[in-house]
Structures are given as structure tokens and as C-alpha cells.
Design a binder for these strands. Structure first.
Lengths: 157, 157
DNA sequence: TATAATTGTTATATTTATATAACAATTATT
DNA sequence: AATAATTGTTATATAAATATAACAATTATA
């Protein structure tokens, strides 16, 4: 493949990602916004799910990956701790560092939320034919494989 | 395909969507949060990009699709209008209804933001081999086709 | 060892996102 | 025509997201 063709393909991929991104943003992960709050919202949720994927992480690494300031991380983590979903664990080798870990309660919460989101997605897919479901499954599988590779290659930013 | 197999596939699809969703959340669409802010942030941006896709929409339809309250829509739209990206147009046939439309300036803004996001995506994909790029392009194309079908089938919620 | 850099928190401030309640204007229903 | 429902805004309040500045504790470097 020539460089030009590759670039066309990259543009095509980028456009497709951008196309379906808004589609999923709220439709699937939306959670009722009640008062008083009983669920972590948006950024709090992202911090939590990142911790689920990456395991325990120092405060600064969380900020680095999400591209937010340190005080912002502190406050997000504070709220997760209030909810009982995360905890601080001072690092043994570097005493400046505080690691953040998901608690068992946090794990249960995420598992539960995932179940809900899964059902929400399934409801949306209800209109599809079996052949389309098969195509979609294959497409997403290869998408995931490739994205995983990128994510392993260069995790921080 | 039996019902059980289809259900397995649906679960598989849902898991894959959930897997890569957080990956893109901030990495790609992130925009620096400056003060004073000159860009619409998050929800404001979602309202704007929804208007770009759907065209002109009544206030209540925006709230319905995003699942947010009417006063919330009013305030989001207010800010988009302040930025010059949207405008209110009273409906001719029903005088209770106010339609919201993207302005030319808003269209330019979205186009520009899209260009940036596209470049950001391309940077992330830089580690891929040509064959992987091809696979990804194909996968996303079929993904998009199927998702479009769903979105046409039942748009509101 | 003295100085510099890193890590995370506090204090403070601002904007964004969000809801409920109350309301006016308009349209639909009985 | 009277009543009910719909649409959108105002008023009000609160939580969430975010940053900068200042700081203390610790580790790295010169």
C-alpha cells in the first residue's frame, strides 16, 4: 500500500470513530442524575473505570492519563473515597507517592454499572438481523484487538 | 443462528463497545480547559454536534435525546448563543416551539474541532502496520453502517 | 550537603451541569 | 368555552469539574 492510500485509510478511520462517538456518549452510559447523588458521575466514573483497567495507580498517573490537574485528581479521588469505591495507599518505595486503589465495593459498583450498560446496548441492537449481528461482532472484535495494541504501545500522555 | 448464539454475540458486542469507550473518551476529544473559556465544553459541545447531525431541532427534542431537563437545555443553548454558535428560531406552525439552529460560525467551529480530533486520532494510529490499518478501516466501515441503521430506526428516547 | 525537582494536598475561585418549582404562552381536548 | 396538556423560560439551588497559587514532605541532583 502506498503512503497516500494509507493516509486515506487513516482519514477514513478517524471519520468513522468521530461519527459513532457521539452516538454512544449519552445513549448508553447515561445514568439518572438524582439529588442527593448516590453514583459517581462522568469524570469520577472515568477515574474509577481507569483504575479497574490499569489496577492501582499513583495520583499523578491518573492526572497524566486523563490530562487533568493534580488538585482536580485529589478532589475526584476524595469523592470516590467518600462513596467507598476507592482508597489511598501510601507507596512503600517512594514516600511522596500515594497510590489509589479500587475497593471491593467499587469493583461491585463497576460490575453492576457494566451490566446495566450492556443491557442498554443490547436493547439498541434489538432491531438488527442475525447476519448484521454477526458482522458487528466480527468488526468490533478486530477493532478491539487493534486498539488494544495501540494502548499497550504507548499508555501515558 | 440460534437465539442462544445471537445472545452470546450481543453480549460480546456490548463488551467490546464498553471496552473501547473509555479509551476514546478523553484521549481524543479532549480540549484544553482554559480560563476564560472560549470553547464549548462537553455537554455544550454535544448539543452542538447533535444539531450538526440532526439539523434544526426544537428545545424539547434536544432535552429528550440527551435525557436532560428543559431548564438545562435552555442554559446550554444560552451559552452556545453567547458564543455565536447557535440561534433560536421561533417555529412557524406551533408558536410554543422554539427551534435551535447552528450558525455558520458554529459550523466552522465544529469543522475545525473535527479536524483537530481527526489529527489526534491519526497520531494514535501511527504505530499500526498497513495491514492493521486496512483491517481497522474495514471493521469501522461495517460498524458505522450497522449503527447508522439503528440510529435511523429509532432516534428518540 | 545544599539546591532543585517531584508528589500530593489545601485553599480559593470559577465555570459547567444539573434539577425542581413556578410561570406564561400556546395548543389540544372535552 | 372551559379545562388540560405542552413548550419553553426564570428563579433558585446545588454538585461536579476544573484551574492557579501556595505549601509540606520527600527524593534526586549538582
Amino acid at each position: 500500500m502506498s503512503g497516500q492510500i494509507i493516509d486515506d485509510r487513516l482519514n477514513n478511520i478517524a471519520d468513522n470513530i468521530l461519527f459513532f462517538f457521539p452516538f454512544f456518549y449519552r445513549k448508553i452510559l447515561k445514568v439518572p442524575h438524582t439529588r442527593p447523588r448516590v453514583n459517581p458521575i462522568n469524570m469520577q466514573y472515568h477515574v474509577l473505570s481507569m483504575l479497574m483497567i490499569q489496577g492501582i495507580l499513583p495520583t499523578s498517573a491518573i492526572g497524566g492519563r486523563l490530562g487533568i490537574s493534580k488538585p482536580n485528581v485529589t478532589s475526584l479521588v476524595d469523592r470516590l473515597i467518600e462513596l467507598g469505591y476507592a482508597e489511598r495507599r501510601p507507596d512503600a518505595s517512594d514516600r511522596r507517592v500515594i497510590n489509589i486503589a479500587v475497593t471491593e465495593k467499587g469493583r461491585r459498583f463497576i460490575a453492576n454499572r457494566k451490566r446495566q450498560a450492556r443491557n442498554s446496548i443490547k436493547r439498541y441492537l434489538a432491531v438488527l438481523q442475525p447476519a448484521e449481528i454477526e458482522d458487528l461482532a466480527v468488526a468490533l472484535e478486530s477493532f478491539r484487538k487493534i486498539i488494544s495494541k495501540i494502548d499497550n504501545g504507548k499508555s501515558g500522555n
